[in-house]
Design a binder for these strands. Structure first.
Length: 174
DNA sequence: TAAGTGATCTCT
DNA sequence: GAGATCACTTAA
């Protein structure tokens, strides 16, 4: 069974979406070919108060995508060489997103975007077949005990928010 | 462990 | 306009 996830899936609590995305399939169409890879690592960035989130200082031209409706694609460029792929969650005007950090066989958010040829052209688009990037439920259920929660990566500056277990990793992959 | 890389943000 | 920072990767 294959089911494309719609905005109703993403318009829920960010942490819940981040956890449930583990075991779903990220599907990318490039030059007519489709690749589907199981998601095994995500991180949640939730709301104004989250110091690790781009949105915690308010809306800017870069992060305004995070304030849009759930299901938008937020891609940004960092460290001079890497694109990061995020899916916007929650209500309009509430800044939240899930960072996709790894899929099966590809660990690291920068490598993921490189492998799937994801760049700024996708920034601000909506997930779906039309865009060439979407997420499917293929009936795989990951048991909760196989999902590990840990603090997020690369955000030591975020004080107390750096410790929160907002990262979800599937055990035994990568 | 540190360097590379460039967009973006936060001051002037 | 300048300077600092950064949700990372690679090579050592």
């Amino acid at each position: 069974m294959k089911k494309i996830l719609l905005s109703s899936f993403f318009n829920r609590k960010t942490l819940l979406v981040a956890e449930e995305l583990i075991g779903k399939f990220l599907v990318r169409r490039v030059r007519g070919k489709e690749k589907a890879l199981m998601i095994c690592e995500t991180e949640a960035y939730d709301g104004f108060k989250d110091k690790a989130s781009h949105a915690h200082r308010g809306k800017t031209t870069r992060n305004e995508i995070m304030f849009r409706e759930a299901g938008h694609i937020y891609v940004y460029f960092t460290y001079g060489m890497h694109y990061m792929l995020n899916i916007v969650t929650g209500n309009k005007d509430y800044p939240a997103a899930v960072l996709l950090r790894a899929v099966e066989g590809v660990s690291g958010p920068g490598r993921l975007t490189k492998k799937l040829r994801i760049d700024k052209k996708l920034n601000g688009k909506f997930l779906g077949r039309k865009t060439g990037l979407w997420i499917e439920d293929r009936g795989v259920t990951i048991q909760k005990k196989l999902i590990r929660r840990t603090p997020r990566i690369g955000i030591r500056y975020a004080e107390e928010w750096a410790k929160k277990p907002y990262r979800f990793v599937m055990k035994g992959k990568n």
